Computed example of a mutant assay.
Amino acid sequence: MTVGRLIVWRHGRTAWNLQDKIQGQADIPLDEVGIGQARAAAARLAALAPTRLFSSDLQRAAATAGELAVLTGLPIEYDKALREIDVDDWAGLTQAELAARNPEAAARIKAGESQRRGTAGETVEEVAARFAEALTRICVQGEASDTTVIATHGLAARVGICRFLSIPDPHWPAFGGLSNCNWVSLLPSTRTNRWRIEEWNAGSLPEPVMSDDPQR
């Protein structure tokens, strides 16, 4: 049986978000604004009476989940498959620095074409498959009355949800990036035995999207 609702929740702001630095799987903490965002969003999500709480093991997502854990008493279940895209040796570069060092790669990313991040990181398609597999595994761990919250990262969440919903790759750019501490709500359809989007980028619009997901 599948859970009744999946909430996929992006972490709060970090200093690297503010500086337009590519984070990938670098373990960057929330800044003071990010902590405040997580607390405010957690109060809203607690009103949904979540029954299970998952998180990426990177500290910016784990600290975001921690704010909801404090309010609900739920234990945090960590899953490395919920990490952000691996950017390898691009971590710490700004988007401008990446464009100066590797203009061809930056141009392919901007055009929505497949491009491996860093020397030995992941492609968007690879992180989408990894994240979708995690959602598939998590969504069957519960009952129809359950609401499961997943604290994670912007790019991984966007493309992973699209893959999970079987949305063809060329249509992924139609789904905007997630702002810090905003979320996507997914509901199962009893008629089609598939999932659908209830809300996208919910929580605190209009907030700017500062992430490894360079949609413009």
Score class of each variant (00 low, 15 high):
R5L: 01
L6V: 05
V8R: 00
V8C: 13
R13T: 13
T14C: 12
W16N: 02
K21P: 03
I22M: 15
G24D: 08
Q25T: 10
A26V: 03
A26I: 02
D27I: 07
P29D: 06
L30V: 09
E32I: 09
I35L: 15
A38M: 09
A42D: 01
A43R: 15
R44I: 02
L45Y: 11
A47K: 15
L48H: 13
A49K: 11
A49V: 01
P50F: 04
T51G: 15
L53Y: 02
L53W: 02
Q59T: 12
A62P: 00
A62H: 14
A69S: 15
V70F: 13
T72H: 10
T72E: 11
G73W: 05
I76T: 13
E77Y: 08
D79M: 11
R83I: 03
V87T: 10
D89T: 00
L93C: 01
L93K: 09
T94L: 03
E97D: 02
E97P: 02
L98G: 00
A107R: 14
A111H: 04
Q115L: 04
R117C: 14
T119E: 02
E122Y: 09
T123N: 13
V124A: 14
R130S: 08
F131G: 04
F131R: 00
F131K: 00
L135R: 00
I138H: 02
C139F: 07
C139T: 08
Q141F: 07
G142Y: 08
S145V: 07
D146Q: 07
A151V: 07
H153W: 11
V159R: 04
I161K: 06
C162K: 03
R163H: 14
F164D: 03
L165Q: 04
S166F: 03
P168I: 09
P168A: 15
D169F: 12
W172E: 01
A174N: 12
N182I: 04
V184Q: 02
S185Y: 08
L187W: 03
R191H: 11
T192F: 15
N193T: 06
I197P: 03
I197L: 11
E199Q: 14
S204I: 00
S204V: 01
L205W: 13
P206W: 05
P208R: 12
P208E: 11
M210H: 14
P214S: 05
R216A: 12
